[in-house]
Design a protein around this nucleic acid. Structure first.
Length: 445
RNA sequence: GGCCACGUGGCGGAGUGGUGACGCAGCGGUCUGCAAAACCGCGUACCCCGGUUCAAUUCCGGGCGUGGCCUCCA
């Protein structure tokens, strides 16, 4: 069994060989905490949680370091914070802190409900401003960056292989550009490392005056701090390939004597909702938080894993119902005394670039113990109680009704027995007469 | 406009240069007072047009469709 991963750098599946099997290192871009995360945001979180678990399975629980940052400095945050601060006796900075703390807390709760393990480190950008400033200084000294009108910009013309991740040349990018270029840029593709902040915008003192970091530098600074100059896997959504990850590479390699930033770049595909792109204007913007109100987290997680991570996927209610049905049956039949493990075909599938649909197919063929072990490796805890519907039900009333129905059945009064069953069904309660003579029930969706 | 990805049966979704994975739904059966659940059985799909090949859903070219990036939206 060899783990193979699709590497965006080469656009091929490659055998995964860690730099240090005693410390396999992975970085995944985390949320910008200004609002509830949507279901599209959940995809990388779940996908890379599965990869984290697989790496732990292969290399040992204590031999994998997983870092997922929290972006808590950002102009969208600043805009929201300004709104919050209005009419209250707090500064924009305080309001920003309040907003990001609150949003990050909800995010962590939601992600935990999706069955995701906490990463080894979840650094916040604002706790790493010093590291960012130091890296920017290095880049300026090395000639990769320049100062212009209070901004510090990365000079892409100094990085000969700029574009190697997204596989486009500078010429192509300039030809396709639709944006107006800021006048202080030497090259249209140059990007901001540091920008000035006014008095009402969060900012930090720096060699270039009071300001705040550009978007990309935080990931370069934090990955270096927690994982070193070169680490094994860098993950995220495919939309981050350009410009975010391309720019991370430029910064990190520029600051680190051209040592590669990450050896395997892994990106998940995009998600649509009910056949349409998800957009606030279309009114189909689905947050994780809202979904968790109606569906067990395990069902969301399973639904996500039914599609290969690089494939585009369509998020539908029909799919969620199907997922619930499958999980419910599995949780009923899974062996209780198992631990995370993987039989032959299952592990082969997972190891082949995280082919979760194939792995799930293997589980359909597995016995009770392999099923439980495989589910646990995928991050499911096969306990029927985890799938209990969020719909409120009166269990006492239901068992009373079941008693009455069974009495009627005993008396061969089937008309009355069926009336009771239909009445419960009308309330969404489906009865099941088990072969051993008992009667159980479940909430029908 | 430039660059890129994807298009498989009613639905979801793997995979492969050559006798139709897997699941959901559906149909038939066992079980049941009848159902439900469970179990057993049932399916000649690969967007269109060319090309390569003994053979293409699988490789190549073109088209159409959907989506992504080029605007700090995963």
């Amino acid at each position: 069994m060899t783990l193979r991963l699709h590497n965006t750098l080469t656009r091929r599946k490659e055998a995964f060989v860690p730099l240090d099997p005693k410390n396999v290192r992975m970085y995944v871009c985390g949320p910008t905490v200004y609002d509830y995360a949507h279901i599209g945001n959940a995809r990388p979180v779940i996908v890379f949680d599965v990869l984290f678990r697989l790496l732990r399975h292969i290399y040992g629980e204590n031999h994998v370091t997983y870092v997922r940052n929290i972006t808590d400095v950002d102009d969208k945050i600043n805009a929201r914070a300004a709104e919050r601060a209005k009419g209250r006796n707090i500064s924009v900075l305080e309001a920003a802190r309040e907003l990001t703390e609150e949003t990050a807390r909800i995010y962590n709760d939601d992600v935990a409900a999706l069955g995701c393990l906490p990463p080894t480190h979840t650094p916040r950008a604002t706790d790493n401003i010093g590291e960012m400033i130091a890296m920017i200084e290095t880049l300026v000294k090395a000639g990769f960056a320049y100062v212009a009108q209070g901004h510090v910009l990365f000079d892409v013309s100094k990085k000969a292989d700029y574009g190697k991740l997204s596989h486009r040349s500078l010429d192509e990018m300039i030809a396709g550009a639709r944006v107006e270029v800021a006048p202080y840029k030497k090259n249209p593709m140059d990007f901001v490392l540091w920008k000035p902040s006014d008095a009402n915008t969060p900012g930090w003192e720096s060699p270039w005056g009071r300001g705040r970091p550009g978007w990309h530098i935080e990931c370069s600074a934090m990955s270096a701090r927690y994982l070193g100059e070169t680490f094994d896997i860098h993950g995220g959504g495919i939309d981050l390939v350009f410009p975010h990850h391309e720019n991370e590479i430029a910064q990190s390699e520029g600051a680190h004597h051209n040592h590669p930033l990450a050896r395997y770049w892994v990106h998940n595909g995009f998600l649509q909702v009910e056949g349409e792109k998800m957009a606030k204007s279309l009114g189909n913007f689905v947050t994780i938080h809202d979904l968790l109100r109606d569906w067990p987290g395990d069902v969301l997680r399973f639904n996500m894993l039914r599609t290969h991570y690089r494939q585009p996927t369509d998020w539908t209610v029909a799919g969620m119902k199907e997922s619930w049905k499958i999980l419910e049956r599995w949780y009923d039949m899974a062996g209780a005394d198992s631990s995370p493990r993987a039989g032959g075909g299952f592990l082969d599938a997972l190891s082949d670039d995280l082919n979760t649909p194939q792995a799930i197919a293997e589980l359909h063929r597995a016995d009770a113990n392999d099923l439980a072990g495989g589910l646990m490796l995928l991050g499911f805890d096969p306990m029927p109680v985890r799938l209990v519907s969020k719909k409120p039900v009166d269990a006492v009333e239901i068992s009373r009704a079941i008693g009455a129905r069974n009495a009627a059945r005993k008396a061969k009064n089937f008309k009355e027995a069926d009336r009771i069953r239909d009445e419960l069904l009308a309330q969404g309660i489906q009865l099941k007469d088990n072969p051993d003579g008992t009667t159980s029930w479940e909430v029908k969706r």
